[in-house]
Design a protein around this nucleic acid. Structure first.
Length: 229
DNA sequence: AATCGAAACAACCGCCAGTAA
DNA sequence: CTTACTGGCGGTTGTTTCGAT
């Protein structure tokens, strides 16, 4: 009995730290068999000594098919900047507008570049010369493994208002403010956009009460965009 | 070549909301 | 109605890599 309890306790001691390729394989195989979700049962079904949370995080941030890796494009940077101005640290919400990018990636990017430093435009030149070789290399391997096995699932959330067909072109079923956002930011030079906004003091129009978790006043946004873009 | 600080990234932690029992 | 469980999210930390000196 005591031995049994000890065994059970031991069973719940999850492994931590960096994931090994073998663990990744286990998780990929699990998702292939059971689909996403039911993370708490991964350990039981796959033999992984990882918590459900850990498995979900690994899958979402690293193993999931369709993930883009490597440096963010100027367009993506612009999207992040603008949406952060609109919604604050709603990383998962922002990530929905950047197909293939994760909330974690965006969060890290923001913290590294903008949190306690100058404007994005000041950091742009610096950013251009930074390349993540290690990550690209690893991701390339992962993609080669998975491209043959997975179909990128359609994003369908009842209250998420968009379906991406290609990353930076077609968006469907967006709200008015989002459509303005799409028109104004997609393809625009980030540095010039930032300069415009910061010089004109436009940030004030984006300020609203973050606690109520609502979109900013659309008419205000519409006004600011129509007058500046 | 060695060292050190900054940047980049992966992963963990705590909290919260939704939901099933 | 209450409670426990689960998944998701944002904040934070630890490690690795890069670049300057």
């Amino acid at each position: 009995m005591v031995a049994m309890m000890e065994w059970r306790m031991h069973e719940k001691e999850w492994r931590k730290g960096p994931w090994t390729p073998a663990e990744d394989d286990f998780l990929i195989e699990y998702v292939r068999m059971h689909g996403e979700g039911r993370w708490s049962s991964v350990a039981d079904c796959s033999g992984l000594k990882r918590s459900g949370k850990s498995c979900r995080l690994r899958w979402v941030n690293y193993l999931r098919p369709g993930l883009k890796k490597g440096q963010l494009t100027p367009q993506e940077e612009g999207i992040i900047i603008e949406l952060h101005a609109l919604w604050g640290n709603k990383w998962s919400t922002i990530a929905r507008y950047l197909p293939g990018r994760t909330d974690n990636e965006i969060k890290n990017y923001w913290r590294t570049n903008f949190k306690k430093k100058g404007t994005p435009s000041q950091n742009q030149e610096k950013q251009k010369h930074k390349v993540s070789f290690r990550r690209d290399q690893h991701h390339h391997q992962q993609q080669q493994i998975m491209n043959n096995n997975y179909v990128l699932p359609q994003v369908e959330e009842s209250n998420q208002r968009m379906i991406f067909e290609s990353p930076e072109t077609k968006m469907e079923d967006t709200t008015v403010s989002e459509q303005h956002y799409n028109r104004s930011v997609m393809g625009q030079d980030v540095a010039s956009w930032w300069d415009t906004v910061s010089e004109d003091g436009l940030w004030s129009v984006f300020l609203w009460n973050l606690d109520n978790d609502q979109y900013p006043n659309e008419s205000v946004i519409e006004q600011s965009f129509s007058s500046n873009f």
